[in-house]
Design a protein around this nucleic acid. Structure first.
Length: 644
DNA sequence: GCAAGGTC
């Protein structure tokens, strides 16, 4: 009898895709009891080498199988002081709704020689793999465990993954286990403390849970940014920061000088090197000196070739930011759509930090696959006929997934409206990466007029190259400049004063927020969108629509609760004795670094958990001691709302 | 009633 191999994917759609490719479409489908999504697919496959042809059962889990929670006696909010959750015993159990899935794996394992794990190739996937392994071993202690390594569901790629299995990465699984325990203990302890304390303060908070997790991230980041002196932008801390700047903004009037020359039937505007000043009298005096000089002298004529660079290979964060901007989809929608496109085998795995292509990947072949398309097929052909360029390389590589790229062509009428938009973006971006930069000629003219300097710039686009396919970038020729020669004198046609008012910064937008979260290591590329959705749901921020129609932008405005919490925590943290250690424990980035230490084997899971808990415990005790600061801030901002 | 991360 043929040996049996059990294969388990992270989600049903991948199980189906893998089964389809390995079996060539000839497989049997069996439902399992107790779960409508998970199916068992059965077929034969030749794994080669020592395995040879085996009968395969391909099934899946639905994300994580297990969850971590406190022992029963600690579950009630009043059962213990919140601080004791740092030590309270915890248990890993299979989630109730996942029990049938776990049963299925244990049963199938009984008859299997080996388990092949087909979870996504990232850290969480490695942990989910370990959960699957535990169930399989519970069913069959002697089962051999392997792991398939793949980053898209293109047929040849999947088959190769089946032939070249590797081992599960225990370090990565441990790193995730550490994160899970820390998130639970810290999140629960602070949330209970905060909620129990604040709900007695104002009626508005009575029924509310004031969750801690996302909040702490936000507050701490704003502090850290301030410390670094670059308090430019956004999460709640970012949102509040910007909000306060908008609120406190007072417009100021400024004045400047503009110089105009009409020559060869063209009107040239020269811009002042000082841009503008806030003192009218001074500007008037400067203009008078210009006029007194009568003639202006050309001090610089710079003509040089210039180019606009093609974009870098596409990462998740970039996809979300560009999507918000150009596709008019919020980041959560984009990720859902991209996930669907990946599952159907049209694009590569959409969660990646990598912005460089591997040398091994056959990019031209991927370009060729786009030939049938009526919009960009011709462009793809031109690339292969000689215009192809090796993509630029960015500086990021997560060593798990390539940049997001199309893996096969799909006819637009097989996609819904949003899928079409996202697929088109991914393809155009990919083709742009494989194109040449746009080339042009820039001209810079500088003049001296009296004691003041002015300049003007011209641009002629000579070769559009990647711009032809990447419609999201704009780079256009300016009006052509008349001829100027260095040293020549001329009398300006016009020179006068203009005035204007400084305008308030605008509230934070989604792409800005994503950019900041990314720069500060908040969340994973897959979860940033959810964090944003969560802070809306928790009513820490509200959304405001600025402008109307197609050009409208969503901006974030903190609620009173949001402002109160930021100010309150600012005050709480103010008094921490050691200013270095204060900011550290809150930081997700710190957590990320420690997880990487586990992944590289320099620290154990237990070490990291203990050290982190010690740090957070210190902050917790401090917060408890200064809880009145938090209460005071809530009173200040929320008391008025109680009537309404 | 708490977290974050998977996925349906």
């Amino acid at each position: 009898m043929a040996r049996k191999i059990l294969c388990v994917a992270e989600k049903p759609a991948i199980a189906r895709a893998v089964a389809t490719h390995l079996s060539g479409g000839a497989f049997q489908t069996h439902a399992i009891r107790g779960n409508q999504y998970v199916k068992n697919y059965e077929f034969d496959f030749n794994f080669g080498g020592a395995w040879g042809t085996c009968s395969v059962t391909m099934t899946s889990v639905v994300g994580h199988l297990t969850g971590l929670d406190f022992d029963r006696q600690y579950k009630g909010w009043m059962s213990c002081p919140p601080g004791s959750l740092f030590e309270a015993p915890v248990q890993e159990t299979v989630d109730k709704d996942k029990l049938p899935i776990a049963d299925n794996i244990r049963n199938q394992a009984k008859y299997s020689k080996a388990l092949f794990i087909w979870t996504d190739c990232d850290r969480e996937g490695e942990h989910i793999g370990s959960e699957v392994r535990n169930q399989a071993k519970a069913g069959n202690a002697r089962i051999e465990v392997k792991r398939a390594k793949f980053s898209n569901t293109e047929s040849a790629h999947v088959r190769r993954a089946a032939l070249e299995p590797v081992n599960l990465d225990e370090y990565q699984a441990s790193a995730v286990a550490a994160r899970i325990e820390l998130d639970l203990r810290i999140g629960a302890a602070f949330t209970r403390l905060q909620t129990l304390q604040l709900q007695t303060v104002v009626a508005a908070l009575k029924e509310k849970v004031i969750s801690y997790g996302k909040l702490s991230i936000m507050i701490d980041i704003s502090k850290r940014i301030n410390k670094l002196g670059s308090c430019q932008f956004p999460t709640l801390g970012f949102v509040v920061d910007r909000y306060l700047r908008v609120q406190n903004f007072k417009p100021e009037t400024f004045w400047g000088i503009k110089v105009i020359l009409s020559r060869e039937g063209k009107k040239v505007n020269f811009l002042w090197k000082r841009v503008h000043l806030f003192d009218r009298a001074v500007v008037t005096m400067m203009l008078e000196r210009c006029l007194l000089a009568k003639q202006a002298r050309v001090t610089k004529v710079n003509q040089k070739p210039t180019s606009k660079w093609r974009p870098l290979p596409l990462t998740t964060v970039d996809l979300q930011m560009m999507g918000s901007r150009f596709l008019r989809l919020d980041s959560q929608t984009i990720m859902k759509v991209a996930e669907a496109l990946y599952t159907k085998g049209f694009i590569s795995y959409p969660r990646t930090e990598t912005d460089q292509f591997d040398k091994g990947i056959d990019l031209k072949k991927l370009v060729e696959k786009q030939y049938p398309d009526s919009s960009w097929g011709q462009y793809a052909r031109e690339l292969i006929d000689g215009k192809f360029r090796t993509p630029r390389s960015g500086r990021h590589n997560d060593k798990a997934h390539p940049p997001i790229h199309p893996v096969s062509w799909v006819s637009p009428n097989q996609l819904n409206a949003n899928e079409k938009k996202v697929y088109e973006f991914v393809v155009r971006r990919f083709l742009a990466c494989c194109s040449d930069d746009a080339k042009g000629q820039s001209t810079e003219i500088e003049i001296q007029y009296g004691d003041e300097f002015f300049h003007t710039n011209g641009l002629i686009v000579l070769e559009r190259n990647y711009l032809d396919v990447y419609v999201y970038d704009k780079w256009e020729s300016s009006q052509q400049l008349p001829n100027f020669e260095r040293g020549e004198l001329f009398e300006p046609t016009e020179a006068n004063i203009f005035d204007g008012k400084t305008t308030a910064p605008s509230y934070l937008t989604e792409p800005e927020l994503i950019g900041l979260m990314d720069a500060n290591g908040i969340g994973t590329d897959a979860t940033m969108a959810e964090h944003i959705a969560k802070i809306k749901e928790r009513e820490y921020v509200a959304i405001n629509e600025r402008g109307g129609g197609r050009s409208s932008v969503q901006e974030f405005i903190p609620t009173r609760l949001g402002v109160a919490l930021v100010e309150g925590y600012d005050n709480v943290v103010e008094g921490l004795p050691n200013s270095v250690s204060l900011s550290k424990p809150f930081l997700r980035k710190e957590m990320e670094l420690r997880m990487l230490e586990i992944c590289s084997g320099t620290k154990t899971r237990q070490e990291v958990v203990q050290q982190s808990l010690d740090m957070y415990r210190e902050v917790f005790i401090h917060t408890q001691r200064r809880i009145n600061m938090l209460k005071a801030a809530c009173r200040k901002y929320l008391v008025e709302e109680t009537g309404s």
